[in-house]
Design a protein around this nucleic acid. Sequence first.
DNA 1: AAATAAACGAGACGGTACGTCCCGTCTTAAA
DNA 2: TTTAAGACGGGACGTACCGTCTCGTTTATTT
Lengths: 189, 189, 189, 189
Amino acid sequence: MKIAILKAANELLEEQGLSGFTIDAVATRSGTARSSIYRWWPNRGALAIAGFLAETAQKIGYPVTASAVADVKSQMMRVAEVYGQKVGRTISALVAQGQSDPEALRALLDGYVLPRREEAKKALLRGIANGELRADVDLDVVIDALYGPIWYRILVPHAPLTSEWAGHLADYVFDGLRPAAADVLSARA
Amino acid sequence: MKIAILKAANELLEEQGLSGFTIDAVATRSGTARSSIYRWWPNRGALAIAGFLAETAQKIGYPVTASAVADVKSQMMRVAEVYGQKVGRTISALVAQGQSDPEALRALLDGYVLPRREEAKKALLRGIANGELRADVDLDVVIDALYGPIWYRILVPHAPLTSEWAGHLADYVFDGLRPAAADVLSARA
Amino acid sequence: MKIAILKAANELLEEQGLSGFTIDAVATRSGTARSSIYRWWPNRGALAIAGFLAETAQKIGYPVTASAVADVKSQMMRVAEVYGQKVGRTISALVAQGQSDPEALRALLDGYVLPRREEAKKALLRGIANGELRADVDLDVVIDALYGPIWYRILVPHAPLTSEWAGHLADYVFDGLRPAAADVLSARA
Amino acid sequence: MKIAILKAANELLEEQGLSGFTIDAVATRSGTARSSIYRWWPNRGALAIAGFLAETAQKIGYPVTASAVADVKSQMMRVAEVYGQKVGRTISALVAQGQSDPEALRALLDGYVLPRREEAKKALLRGIANGELRADVDLDVVIDALYGPIWYRILVPHAPLTSEWAGHLADYVFDGLRPAAADVLSARA
DNA sequence: AAATAAACGAGACGGTACGTCCCGTCTTAAA
DNA sequence: TTTAAGACGGGACGTACCGTCTCGTTTATTT
């Protein structure tokens, strides 16, 4: 039952965004009763993020090759590709919901944003260990610089979100984060 | 009258975000009637962005010094400082509204986002002309890289938005955009 | 509008009693919206008694002949006849509602029961003035004795409510309330 | 188990009337499960009257002295006294329930009202046999006249239900039912 | 100065969705 | 096999806003 509800919730969010995402609509599509939904989730915000986490939030992982920077770049390109489609709609709906529903925002942060940032941090630390990235960098800022623009383009869609764009973005940011030649030498020494 | 309404709209948006932003509340606070609001704006989305553009959207301009890069960085720091406060609340409310109200989104883009990006582009072009920035860079991507994270931190507030943070961000991004030494030399030639 | 609502409320109460008396049903039948009903009445209890008072509560008046006792008796017979039909259904619904809704009960008392008792009291006072009734009688008890059984048969319908029955009832009660022969003589003196 | 449930049902009915009388509340108070209640009673109406009959419906009997009229009067006074308290609350709840639940009404009539009327009839027949009451009287009407007002004051509480009041009521009604002097003489003959 | 147009206030109206409460049915695991 | 536990579909409640609408009342404008 819960699964059918979550599935329906997700589909509605993907297809119609926040405005079509009604408890009644979820109930109808899932073939359940409104009361069954409220039995499990306290309100529409909670249901929305639960649906997202259960169904959509397919974790896009990091490949592991010799180059951590290349790994992150390729993951970002994949993220942009995926978020450029239906998932982006869902995410923007969730963020919108979060603006007037602090609990939903909290749940989105704790359930999705922060864990994903942790993964990113791990990948970047490999880059530092590698010598591909400067060691003195503030990783939180780097993650903001890499992924912030992706969220930005989802939420403020002034232009489409494509993997090419994400590739350029990664290149620009990483270009600034390489160790200075001297550092590389000393690191090698 | 219109001014009082816009002012009230803005204050409510700043103070309470989307949830407190009710046509009724705006009418009450502005001392007007609901019907007067609907005479001038077709719906709450339109009123919200009108209020923002009329009152809050104090354009944060770019200083003009010898270094365009420094100019942009200092503007970004100022933006982060300002958006870290009430204005951020308003902006996030507008973006949220935009997710279920395409016209509001359009108005936000046309009335605020795109013009601001144009200004940024001008400043960056000065940097290219200066030789501070590589000439082959895609400015739209650069603007996304610089400002995207700011919007991201407004909308997905996993950590506070401060001017220090914005400074680091600018540094990291601009570090990757400097011309290669050879280019600089040839440019000078 | 209000009139259409009250009319619909009444019809539903008469036809289906409390169980069919739903705000939704009233809205549908009256061709209005639920919200319009709630604009005017705070809850279903208030609507029920308002409907009754506005539409059904046709005051059954007292004839005025030489004999006040005969007047009351004939009014009671008329009341029994009327209450034995649809109006009785409405009244029983209202009393039932009142058991779990103190405000509705209060409204029923103040809006209907007490005023009707006042009228009865006036008629009975004529009987005392006439010499048809003992002067030392407690009129509240008399009214209870005369009309209580009618309500009882509405609410606890162990047998039908007919005007013949009401006539007998009036006879029995009034038989006990005539002045003693001596009193009549002295009154005449 | 059943006993605990009935007891809890009764207490709730006495304490809170119909509105607090919820299957859930009965289950909680009796320490049983909702399903156990539904095993034994088909719905809340049935449970309510079962609780009443099992626990509260303490039969208030008729004393047997030389005067049947005095016996009935004293029983009425006792009834008024008892019904003026918690039991009255229960009864009004049951009647209310009966208005939208024909089976509950039927059960109340068959299980309580009609049997009590039979008892009353027996007492009154003694009065006729005694010569205290006219022989040609319709006992059903008399019973309505005597007890109807008590129910009326329970259900339409325009004034408190006291034993003094019931005493007056009995006096007034019985005053009209005494045999005419001639009849008494002829009866004696 | 009178006529006329506009903007205004007040607020009713039909509607949609919310979240709550309770109903009566049902399945399941433990005692 | 009776019980406790509790999920399920369903229906009504009362609330909060939405956007539309009518209707008199100012307030200005224009003749």
